[in-house]
C-alpha cells in the first residue's frame, strides 16, 4: 500500500518535471524541472531498495550534470533566452512529435501484448534478455560491483575510453579555432 502511494507521488514528480523541461521557456527553470525528474527517479530507486543507484542518481545527475547545464546556460548569456522560442532546425518539432508518437506506440504495444506473466510483450519488442544474475543476500553495492567489474568489464572500460575520446575531441575542436580568437589573460606576463 505504502509503495503504491510513493510510486504515484514520485511518478507525478517525474512526469511533471519532464513536462516542465519541455514547456518552460526559461532554460534555467527547465533545468530545475530536470532536477525534479531526477529526484523522482531516485525515489523510485529507493522504493526498489537500490539505495546506491538512488544516491548516485542524485550525486551525478542532480548534482554534477545539471550544475554543468546551468554553468553553460549562464556562461552563454541568459539574455539569449528569446532564441529558444524559434525553431533552430526547420521541421524539428514535427519530427520530434512523430518520433515520440512512434516511441509511445512501442511502449503501448509492449504493455498490451504482454500476457499475465508480463514476459511476452517485452520479449516481442526487445528480444530475449540475457541471463539475469541471481540476486544474493549481499548489499546492492557489492552485487552491482560484482556484475559491473566481471561480466560487463569490457563495456565499462569501453565507455571510459569513449568518454576520454570525447573529451580530447572537444579540446581539439576548441584549439582549432585559431590563435587570434584566444584572449590570453596569462598571469605573470604583461600584454603589450
Amino acid at each position: 500500500m505504502v509503495d503504491v502511494i510513493v510510486f504515484i507521488i514520485s511518478a507525478s514528480v517525474i512526469l511533471g518535471g519532464a513536462i516542465g523541461v519541455i514547456f518552460n521557456p526559461n532554460p534555467v527553470h527547465a533545468a530545475l524541472s530536470l532536477i525534479a525528474t531526477f529526484f523522482g527517479v531516485a525515489i523510485l530507486f529507493v522504493l526498489q531498495e537500490v539505495h546506491f543507484l538512488a544516491l548516485v542518481q542524485v550525486v551525478v545527475y542532480g548534482g554534477a550534470v545539471v550544475v554543468l547545464f546551468l554553468f553553460v546556460i549562464m556562461l552563454l548569456g541568459v539574455e539569449e533566452i528569446e532564441r529558444f522560442d524559434e525553431e533552430p532546425i526547420e521541421g524539428q518539432r514535427i519530427a520530434a512529435l512523430g518520433g515520440s508518437l512512434i516511441l509511445l506506440g512501442v511502449i503501448l504495444a509492449g504493455l498490451f501484448l504482454s500476457g499475465p506473466g508480463g514476459e511476452d510483450g517485452a520479449v516481442a519488442i526487445t528480444g530475449q534478455a540475457a541471463q539475469m544474475v541471481p540476486l544474493t543476500n549481499e548489499t546492492d553495492v557489492v552485487q552491482l560491483a560484482n556484475d559491473l567489474f566481471t561480466r560487463h568489464v569490457f563495456a565499462f572500460e569501453a565507455t571510459g575510453l569513449l568518454l576520454t575520446i570525447a573529451t580530447v575531441g572537444a579540446v581539439v575542436l576548441v584549439k582549432n579555432r585559431g590563435a587570434e580568437d584566444l584572449v590570453v589573460d596569462e598571469p605573470g606576463t604583461s600584454v603589450r
Binding site: H51, F52, L55, V56, V58, V59, G62, G63, V67
Partner: peptide, 11 residues
C-alpha cells in the same frame, strides 16, 4: 554517499 549528494545539491 548521502553526504556527497547533499553537498552537491547545496550549490
Amino acid at each position: 554517499l548521502f553526504f556527497l549528494a547533499m553537498s552537491s545539491l547545496a550549490v
